[in-house]
């Protein structure tokens, strides 16, 4: 930091130019890396989309173009119902887990509750507990102690239980280093604690909340073992219908279903992007 004697202008300019190119270099290499990682994430997805147009039933070799699996999918009520169930359960789970996780993380951060540390440890139990233990113990709890019939409710409770810690941990990370005066400033301006939380803290936490919601939705959508034990016949989700399928070869209708869902999500996301852009400008 000894710049004594030399003109600040003379030394400042080349330094900032060098660092700029440094940050640019970093930006470019990270960009390339990110593109590579996206390719890695999408390679199997590309393959499953390709195989949804395969005429062979076995998902292993390409044997010719066909739309038969899409046709068959639309008349396969069981698969479509199961997929709807999956979406319902995942959506409700996401809402519940996000609320529980976000509010929980904030309360544990903002207040000193007795047994605070034990509470913080308890939250990790659903994450580390093997799925079969969680499924069976929740099943016993629902059937023998709570007298809760197995169905949507029991399934959503079970899914929320293993999803909300993911939200909570993510939100906690975002809270670390929160400016304590953010909330106080809002309250000085006359906001109640609830208003301050809603108007100031929630927007600040939004990236973590969105991440947590995305993770919950994904975890719930794909859960098999916990679902086996906690669902009833009316709320069969897609993984339950899919799991035994490998015996006779995974049905390419599943590829078709996945391809359509991804396409729909992309369409919705791009539309959202477009609408968002118009609002911004």
């Amino acid at each position: 930091m000894t710049v004594a004697g030399s003109s600040p202008l003379a030394t400042g300019t080349p330094r900032s130019r060098r660092s700029l190119s440094g940050s640019r270099l970093q930006g470019i290499s990270f960009g390339i890396w990110t593109a590579g990682v996206f390719a890695f994430l999408y390679i199997p997805i590309l393959l499953l989309v390709v195989f949804s147009f395969n005429s062979s039933r076995l998902n292993i070799r390409w044997e010719g173009f066909s739309l038969q699996w899409y046709g068959a999918l639309f008349s396969n009520k069981v698969l479509i119902t199961a997929f709807q169930n999956s979406l319902i359960v995942a959506s409700v789970t996401t809402v519940l887990a996000t609320i529980l996780g976000t509010v929980g993380a904030w309360m544990l951060y903002r207040y000193r509750f007795p047994f605070q540390r034990s509470l913080g440890l308890l939250i990790f139990i659903p994450m580390v507990m093997p799925e079969v233990l969680m499924g069976v113990s929740l099943l016993v709890l629902f059937v023998q102690f709570l007298n809760l019939p197995l169905g949507y409710t029991s399934l959503v409770i079970a899914h929320t239980t293993f999803c909300f810690p993911f939200v909570l941990v993510g939100v906690q990370a975002r809270l670390q280093g929160l400016d304590p005066f953010l909330e106080e400033a809002a309250m000085d301006l006359g906001a109640t604690p609830v208003q301050a939380f809603w108007k100031v803290i929630v927007p600040y936490l939004m990236p973590a909340i969105v991440s947590g919601a995305l993770m919950s939705f994904t975890l719930s959508l794909d859960e098999y073992i916990v679902s086996v034990f906690t669902t009833g016949s009316q709320s069969q989700t897609l993984p339950l219908k899919v799991y035994g399928m490998a015996k006779v070869g995974l049905n390419p209708q599943l590829n078709a279903l996945s391809a359509l869902f991804i396409a729909a999500t992309f369409a919705a996301a791009v539309a959202g992007q477009f609408i968002g852009k118009r609002k911004h400008s």
Binding site: L87, S91, A269, A271, G272, Q273, H280
Partner: peptide, 14 residues
């Protein structure tokens, strides 16, 4: 706004 569109898309599906 992006978040709300995303969430409402999901809600619509549900």
């Amino acid at each position: 706004t992006k978040t709300t569109t995303l969430l409402s898309a999901l809600a619509a599906l549900a």
